[in-house]
Simulated assay, not measured.
Amino acid sequence: MPIRTNRGRTAVYRRLWGWPLRSPRHLVGTLVILAVVLTALGILLPKAIGKPGQTASGPGSSATATSRPGVAAPVTVTSTLPPRLTTQPPPSSAPPDQDGVRVAKEWVTAWANHPDGTTTEQWLSGLKPYTTDEFWSTDLRTVDPANITATRVNGEPRVASSVTGSMEVDVPTDGPKVRVTVVKTNPGWRVTKFTQAG
């Protein structure tokens, strides 16, 4: 069994500490590695613990105050950023399109057409030509036609609002008034939403 003495450890430590002084090339390599390690620590440590003296002077601007040795007053650097738009401009109003009004009336006519014995699939197939695919395949499938009190359209539709590519049209029925939202798509005007007013 080998005997371990302090002399052996001391020799190893002496070799490690003496390696940089063995030749000029070893010394330069050691100094370069030491400089890289110190630079990395100087960059990473302030990010890890946060920079002291950093303040924000308002929305859209940032100010950083840093003090240097030998300088009496802190140096403040301020940058102002342009304001960021958070809202889109409202769409421009447009005159009503009679094709869209016609589609709204035909949709409400098909919506109110549900005689006794009409299945949900039959009722939905009557609405399909006037409805967007998304609205037809999702929201309308949750409607039970037996719960609709209207049976026919009993007046002319009136445009409540009209913007480029979209309109809201009120259609009177013998039940509630129905407000229909129609949008212009590639196949033409289609219904994307409806609500009932008492």
Rank of each mutant, 00 (worst) to 15 (best):
R158E: 11
R14D: 10
T195W: 04
T173L: 12
G60M: 07
V178T: 09
D99V: 05
V183T: 12
H26D: 08
R9I: 12
G117A: 10
V108D: 02
V75T: 15
T181G: 13
W189H: 08
P46D: 09
L16R: 11
N186W: 09
R190A: 06
Q196P: 10
T55E: 15
V32W: 00
T66S: 15
W17Q: 14
K193Y: 08
L16Q: 10
A94Y: 08
D97H: 09
V32C: 00
A94P: 02
A160P: 08
T195P: 00
T142Y: 08
K51D: 06
G126F: 06
T64V: 14
K193D: 10
W107I: 01
T118F: 03
T195C: 00
T64N: 11
T164Y: 01
F194N: 05
G42Y: 03
T39S: 14
V71G: 13
R190P: 03
H114S: 03
G155C: 12
W189E: 03
A104V: 10
T195A: 06
W123G: 01
S137Q: 11
T30L: 07
R179C: 04
S79F: 07
G53P: 06
R14Y: 01
G50A: 03
P115N: 12
P176W: 02
V183Y: 04
D174P: 12
L140V: 10
R190S: 02
S137W: 05
P2N: 15
R179E: 09
V37W: 03
T76Q: 14
L140P: 00
F135N: 07
G42A: 15
A160L: 12
V77I: 11
R190I: 02
N154W: 02
G198W: 13
T138C: 04
S166Y: 08
A72E: 05
S93N: 12
V153C: 02
I43M: 00
T195D: 04
V37E: 01
R179L: 11
T87Q: 09
P95Q: 14
D144S: 15
R84E: 10
L140W: 00
Q88H: 07
